[in-house]
Design a protein around this nucleic acid. Structure first.
Ligand SMILES: [Zn+2]
Ligand SMILES: [Zn+2]
Ligand SMILES: [Zn+2]
Ligand SMILES: [Zn+2]
Lengths: 150, 150
DNA sequence: AAACAATATGTTATGTTATAACATATATAA
DNA sequence: TTATATATGTTATAACATAACATATTGTTT
């Protein structure tokens, strides 16, 4: 997310829309869940579960299950994503309108950009349809060296 | 890989072409590496590192580094792939002509199919190019319920 | 063949990621 | 209020992976 100029605002909006989404869906964004979400939104870099664990002093038990439960809640409700190729977690850029996305991940600066493209989405749908696959879930992560790091 | 009718043959060919590839590139397909490769090729289902570890009695030290070294050798030389969304390993269907592939993974039977598509490949290239990414590596895993399991 | 260098494997220990199982607390509904 | 569901605490352990250093094997040079 190289074009994030004002991350404080960016983060504020993310938290606001997480709250809205939870209100709308009658989900409880508890203190622990909110804290984990905030830690993830500190930057546009992916965060590891155990980094959250170390950072989450003073709130919750500070033990793995607490963090993983919060992560699973956030994942299940589309507020964050898991980057499978690096076992880390990142905030969803558009939780209310999320369709199918892919991620661009810079191996140098670590920055992640979440991208949507109708063409890519169609491609995935075609691939699934051709193979007669149902209820598909797609993981697509493109890593490389981003423009700023080249 | 639902259309594998004769897996013995399938496996034999895989081993043969692995040998050929190693001969051609002057790589040593040692006993341990070959054994790990064979275990992975037992089926078209992905295999976990520690399953290999348990199965590889009598050959090599039977300790994690042995297995992971073999896996890394096979990965680096394009003989197997890692499925990041389930931390498991699977034989490459076409080690000599491998371009960009995506995987179809059935959540029910566990079967994996490795697919290539020029269109999909183009899509990835366009995405990388638009984002000005270099030296890209793509992970694309489509999971769902396959036709036979529906 | 002997000496050397490079590659591969053995060994011990530990780091990292994630969940099972069961107890307790808190929120919502009846 | 009592019941029920949801969330969190707690302990232990499973599952995945690598660091660091020793030894063995292979290939090359002298
Ligand atoms: Zn931002
Ligand atoms: Zn998203
Ligand atoms: Zn087969
Ligand atoms: Zn392949």
């Amino acid at each position: 997310m190289k074009n994030c100029k004002d991350h404080k605002k960016c983060k504020r909006i993310a938290i606001k829309s997480a709250k809205d989404l939870c209100d709308k869906k009658n989900l409880r964004l508890t203190e622990i869940r909110k804290k984990v979400f905030e830690i993830i939104w500190k930057s546009h870099k992916p965060v590891k579960a155990y980094d959250i664990l170390h950072e989450i002093k003073g709130i919750g038990s500070g033990k793995p299950p607490t963090v993983y439960r919060a992560l699973n809640f956030l994942l299940q409700n589309g507020l964050i994503h898991k980057l499978n190729s690096q076992q880390s977690y990142i905030g969803c850029e558009h939780p209310n309108s999320h369709k199918q996305c892919y991620f661009l991940s810079c191996n140098k600066c670590g920055d992640i950009t979440e991208c949507c493209s109708i063409e890519m989405d169609n491609m995935f749908n075609i691939a699934a349809k051709e193979a007669k696959f149902n209820n598909t879930n797609i993981v697509c992560e493109i890593s490389g060296i981003c423009f700023s790091c080249t």
